[in-house]
Write a protein that binds this DNA or RNA. Structure first.
Lengths: 152, 152
DNA sequence: TCTAATCTTGACTTATTTAGTCGGGATTGG
DNA sequence: CCAATCCCGACTAAATAAGTCAAGATTAGA
């Protein structure tokens, strides 16, 4: 699970769409408007939406008055879907598939640690839907300990 | 919290040290040996250990028969310490410190989400000590749901 | 005191990834 | 037809990460 600007842009754009829809904006939504509101280069957003469409997260309507609409309800789309759609799938390190990796134990242990971390991140992002994002749920910038509650 | 190869190397090297120590190897440990075992370029490891030393995670002994030793017990050093020592501190996005960020709600919500995610990652890595790593604790590559247990 | 082993430092180079641009093409409503 | 929009692939630029190199300082031991 890669965490790049590209992924953040995708989440921002999708959240923007969800918010527009919930505010009663007519569908489909023009990419240009999203790009302007979120201050993202249109050409770059187009690339990103190409991925989102290929992964079935949005539907496109071509031609005049065309645009994009969410393919599912905002409660049905989670952040992990979005990030995975626009960033390459995490490349599995060879170590694990190529047998037991007997030599060099520490390398594997570290590798497992990072693997596990990746899963934790994914689990968290899976637990947050677009609807949660625009509602501000599960997103509070708290410093205390309770911000893990939704992971258990 | 950045998650780069540099950070992984640092964790691998420190775990290697902890393992050597627990196997009764004489201290200090030569960087060259660590580099060989973990297949990391010596010159690159030197850079990394320079950071680790500055952050008080290892102690150096110069000259012949010199080397590095862990500054604390392996149970007292956690992975988050190591990663933060060798990768730059996470740059705070301006949005939050420069007031309320009234304009453009979605941007802030997304930002909070990523902030929160960063904290989750840090919390997890804080919960894993070097001793855990070499014991394989909290590092199991399980696919099921119980791998979150230690986060709650 | 000489020497080899080791850490120490900073500048430099190279490779990789990410972000972003550009030009053109296809489709559609009016 | 034409303007608005999605669509696509190639390209460029910027940033970051990874790695190398050369020279120096320190120390143990012969």
């Amino acid at each position: 699970m890669k965490l790049s600007t590209r992924g953040r842009y995708a989440v921002m754009a999708m959240a923007d769409m969800a918010q527009q829809v919930s505010a009663g904006a007519p569908s489909p939504l023009r990419l240009g408007a999203i790009a302007t509101r979120q201050e993202i280069s249109l050409a770059y957003l187009e690339q990103i939406f190409s991925d989102l469409r290929r992964h079935g997260l949005v539907q496109s309507t071509r031609g005049a008055h065309g645009g994009y609409s969410l393919a599912k309800d905002a409660t049905e789309i989670n952040v992990s879907d979005i990030v995975l759609a626009v960033d390459e799938p995490l490349d599995v390190t060879r170590c694990r598939q190529s047998g037991a990796c007997m030599s060099n134990h520490v390398r594997c242990l570290t590798h497992d640690l990072w693997d596990n971390l990746g899963r934790q991140i994914e689990t968290y992002l899976q637990s947050v839907s677009l609807a949660d994002v625009i509602a501000g749920d599960k997103v509070e910038p708290k410093i205390g300990g309770e911000h893990n509650a939704h992971l258990s």
